[in-house]
Design a protein around this nucleic acid. Structure first.
Length: 948
DNA sequence: ATCCCCTTACG
DNA sequence: GCGTAAGGGGATC
């Protein structure tokens, strides 16, 4: 009994659909623009089952051509199904290939559904003494459950439930699983378009089965029913019997069960990984290899009832079979060698390489001579941490020839390290040697601590790839895997997972440091050769050479500079906020009648909508919780004090936790200033992003929040903060690009663009525009930039959907060229697969030709927005580069500190103020020539708030 | 400890 | 409706 043979039958389409919808909010799109959600979802489930259960017999069953028998019985069978999504249709051939390569049998019979195939096989296998597990989320299969046939049902949030007879009895409230057919027949199934009995749902069907046992039993006793129900059921007897037939899984499909055909055998691991690679499944490849090369995890014994769980030993009948692949070979994690055997990707152990540690003394001298004779060198610094201001240099790797390189270790003592660095200064500061690296901003910042300036031409592979494919990620491991078919040594292999036991690079043995560090330099060098060509092809060379590369040095300088923070001021603010928060908290508890965590949307929703029942039909979030989002609550605010208090509480706690209390902790002790890190390769449109801390989202819209800006102050009494921002840059860009004369003229005349729009749209003199009209015009103006819809607009304003639609119509009549521009952008994207900014920065939008209307509409909005947002980003980047250059050339003491998308903030040295203002204005306004003037507004202040 | 969800801050 | 980062809660590992 204990080693009874087990057969797993997988319901392919059910799992494919499930996989597809699991990713629906965040579909997996690979670099070729293909939606791989369905394939990934299905394969994950399949591997999951194999890993958990280690089946010895397994098959995957597909439908083919629909059910002939059922279609004959009922022409509308499955008629109301939506068309199969493209992503799924495309997925099926891939899944079949994957299964073939895994050597997993595919069962399919023309004219039958997978249900019928699975049912027939399960019954046949039962006769031969197998236990069968039907892997499917579809409850219809419950009718087949018996002593030896189980449902193996994936549950939301991971894991599986095994349904045997007791589970089916309980869930369907039946005496025998076969009654599930009667239940389904009565209730019907909208997905399959099985009609069922009118007016009968889950509850009534269960009641009927309890009373009459079956559909036939019910129909024979309709005289016992009363009223409307009696009428309806009596009038639908035929429909009932038909529904039952449709719901019955057929057990006479012409398929044979021959155990040999279902045995698990060794997969063609190379074949599978090749398909995964093509699809760009990186994590899945590892998971797959692990699944097929390691000991099964026995941690999850809940999935199959314990008495059913077979003991699995090498002596088990199947595992011993000739040519049989034992799934239980290894122990624990697969060894590197095993991984390699099944991984088509190369590692450091496969390639010929010559990585040398530079020895002190004569070795170093010879190395330096060699180094200084190169034209182009890739380098990579190794340090003790991620923060370049605190990290110590451990060593530097150099490579200028594929497969070769050197590692120069640095002494721990800072003085000695500086001495060694002096010998490298001629190299780093040599204008004639090109420097190559991955994320050079980091290395430049590290070297700055040693007063070394990295000069000469730069090539940053991360930036190159950002321009080549901005929507992808750009870490070196991914790049190496994608472009070089190579898996680098992972940092965790060296220093361990993060946490208490993590080593510092300095504690890693020198040979390993060398292998790891030089490998990085070597790979980066190889990536450079790859990307150099691609940059030319994509015509982004100029953008790379003239914008992103020069900007890298500018950002490094700004980050190193940091900004002064008034910590005492924030302490005071914190105390004030705390008082108000406590007061509101007490108030809210009183109103709610109990204490709870106001910060927990879940608890708050329960209190507001379950307990207090403030609304009849509360809005819910995607996950089924009550939504307590701002827009929902604001709507209720006027009627309920508790809501007003909650909103105020929210605002204040956000302010306190995210800014007032967090910022002082981000002050770097060694400089006493806050140093943000600008990410140059994150935003797909070309914008920068800022983190640790994010200085691009410091509050300004509310009075209370605005106070935080008072904490950002000049360096000292000789300095003052200067803020310069572009006025309406995005609208100016769309006016210029669309050549919409009406809008261009308004900008040339220096009009208030929102008022001007309102005047034109509402056909009144600009003087008579009301606040409300200007507000609505403003919303539409911004809406255009984001890709408007009447729905979105009415959500943002007090306008109804119809009014919003009308407003948009009038707007387009006012600015006809704008509408043309928008459709031209979309058409361009459809034809070329991308859109671009004024400087030729591209954003690829493959989804714009897809068949999913929602995804396609999003791509269309991107086609409009990306060139606008991206062009604004291009322009301010030019300004930053030029300003930085002037600051250096003219030896200004003033410094550029922050960039906030359309604003630059400076520490202005007071004696330079007038010259500086002039220079900044000129550079910003003249950064790029458009058909409309660029206008910059400037302010000065003893803090960032005042400077506005 | 880590990840996802929800919410909210900015342009 | 576009583009981001971050905090707290809560589930999961």
């Amino acid at each position: 009994m204990s080693d009874q043979k087990r057969l797993f039958l997988v319901d392919a389409y059910a799992l494919i659909f499930r996989g597809y919808y699991a990713f629906i909010k965040n579909p997996r799109i690979n670099s070729k623009g293909m939606d791989t959600s369905a394939i990934l979802g299905f394969t994950n489930s399949l591997l999951d089952v194999i890993k958990r259960e280690r089946p010895d017999h397994l098959a995957v069953c597909f439908d083919k051509g629909g059910s002939e028998a059922r279609n004959e019985m009922f022409t509308d069978y499955k008629a109301n199904r939506d068309e199969t999504p493209d992503a799924i249709r495309i997925a099926v051939p891939y899944i079949e290939e994957i299964l073939k390569a895994m050597h997993i049998p595919i069962m399919v019979k023309e004219g039958y559904e997978a249900d019928d195939v699975i049912g027939t096989l399960a019954k046949k296998a039962e006769k031969e003494g197998y236990k069968t597990y039907m892997v499917t989320p579809d409850k219809d299969f419950a009718q087949l459950v018996s002593e030896n046939i189980f449902m193996y049902k994936p549950v939301f949030g991971g894991g599986y439930e095994t349904w045997g007879i007791p589970e089916v009895k309980e869930k369907f409230e039946v005496d025998d699983p076969s009654q599930v057919i009667d239940y389904l027949g009565m209730m019907g199934d909208s997905a399959d378009n099985i009609p069922g009995l009118p007016g009968v749902g889950d509850k009534t069907a269960k009641k009927f089965i309890a009373a009459y046992g079956s559909m036939e039993g019910l129909l024979a006793n309709t005289d016992q029913l009363k009223g409307k129900m009696k009428e309806k059921v009596e009038g639908a007897k035929e429909l009932g019997l038909l529904s039952k037939k449709l719901a019955t899984i057929m057990l006479d499909v012409p398929v044979e069960f021959d155990a040999k055909d279902f045995e698990m055998s060794e997969p063609d691991i190379q074949g599978v990984t090749k398909i995964f690679e093509e699809l760009e499944f990186r994590r899945l490849t590892d998971n797959f290899i692990k699944t097929f090369t390691s000991e099964p995890s026995n941690s999850d014994s809940k999935s199959v009832p314990s008495e059913e769980k077979p003991t699995r030993t090498k002596a088990s009948p199947t595992a011993a079979g000739a040519g049989q692949f034992s799934l239980f070979g290894g122990d624990g994690e697969p060894s590197e060698a095993t991984q390699k055997k099944y991984n088509s990707r190369n590692t450091i152990n496969d390639i010929e390489h010559f990585y040398q540690t530079v020895q002190p003394g004569m070795g170093t001298k010879l190395f330096l001579q060699n180094l200084n004779n190169q034209k182009s060198v890739c380098f990579d610094t190794e340090t003790t941490g991620l923060n370049p201001l605190t990290a110590e240099l451990v060593g530097i790797a150099f490579s200028w020839e594929t497969g070769k390189g050197f590692y120069l270790p640095f002494p721990e003592d800072f003085e000695e390290a500086c001495e060694l660095m002096e010998s490298l200064r001629p190299f780093f500061e040599n204008e004639g040697i090109e420097k190559i690296g991955q994320n050079l901003k980091y290395d430049i910042k590290v070297l700055a601590k040693y007063k070394v300036d990295v000069k000469g031409k730069l090539f940053d592979t991360m930036l190159a790839h950002y321009l080549i494919n901005p929507d992808m990620r750009h870490n070196m491991d991914v790049l190496a895997e994608t472009y070089l078919n190579y898996t680098p040594v992972s940092i965790t292999e060296l220093i361990g997972k993060k946490g208490k036991n993590q080593l510092s690079m300095r504690e890693v043995p020198l040979e390993q440091q060398t292998e790891y560090a030089v490998e990085d330099a070597d790979i980066t060098l190889q990536l450079k050769e790859h990307f150099e060509k691609e940059l030319g092809e994509a015509n982004t060379q100029k953008l790379f050479d003239e914008i992103e590369i020069p900007l890298l040095r500018v950002l490094a300088a700004m980050e190193l500079e940091g900004i002064n923070l008034d910590e005492n001021f924030l302490k005071g603010l914190s105390v004030e906020l705390d008082k108000d928060i406590k007061r509101l908290e007490a108030e809210i508890y009183k109103e709610a009648g109990e204490e709870f965590n106001i910060g927990s949307p879940r608890q708050l929703g329960d209190i507001l909508f379950d307990k207090m029942k403030l609304v009849d039909k509360p809005k819910k979030t995607k996950t089924g919780q009550y939504s307590t989002a701002e827009d929902v609550l604001s709507y209720l605010a006027k009627d309920h004090k508790i809501i007003r208090d909650v909103l105020e509480y929210r605002g204040l706690s956000k302010l306190k936790s995210t800014y007032v209390d967090a910022l002082p902790g981000q002050v770097e002790p060694s400089t006493g200033r806050v140093h943000t890190d600008y990410m140059q390769t994150v935003a797909a449109t070309g914008r920068l992003s800022s983190n640790n801390p994010n200085l691009q989202n410091i509050p300004i819209r509310t009075e209370r929040g605005r106070q935080v800006r008072k904490a950002f102050i000049p360096r000292d009494k000789d300095h003052i903060l200067l803020a310069a921002d572009y006025s309406q840059i995005e609208l100016r860009i769309i006016a210029a690009l669309s050549e919409e004369e009406n809008m261009i003229q308004a900008f040339r005349d220096g009009e208030d663009i929102h008022a001007s729009t309102a005047a034109k749209v509402f056909n009144i003199p600009i003087k008579e525009v009301t606040r409300e009209q200007r507000g609505n015009a403003k919303t539409v103006n911004f809406g255009i930039i984001y890709g408007v819809s009447a729905f979105g607009l009415s959500n943002q304003t007090d306008l109804s959907r119809t009014e919003a639609k009308e407003l948009i119509e009038t707007y387009y009549k006012t600015y006809p060229k704008l509408r043309d521009y928008i459709s031209d952008q979309i058409a361009f994207a459809r034809e070329h697969g991308y859109v671009q900014t004024v400087l030729g920065r591209r954003r690829y939008l493959n989804a714009i030709n897809g068949s999913n209307a929602v995804v396609r509409a999003a791509a269309e909005r991107n086609a409009v927005n990306a060139p606008i947002q991206g062009s604004a980003a291009d322009i301010i980047k030019i300004a930053m580069i030029n300003i930085h250059k002037k600051l250096e050339e003219k030896k200004f003491k003033s410094k550029m500190l922050l960039q906030v998308h359309d604003e630059l903030v400076f520490d202005a040295y007071k004696p330079e103020l007038e010259e500086l203002r002039q220079m900044i204005k000129t550079e910003m306004e003249g950064a790029y020539k458009l058909a409309v003037p660029l206008v910059v507004e400037m302010g000065l202040g003893e803090n960032w708030l005042e400077a506005h």
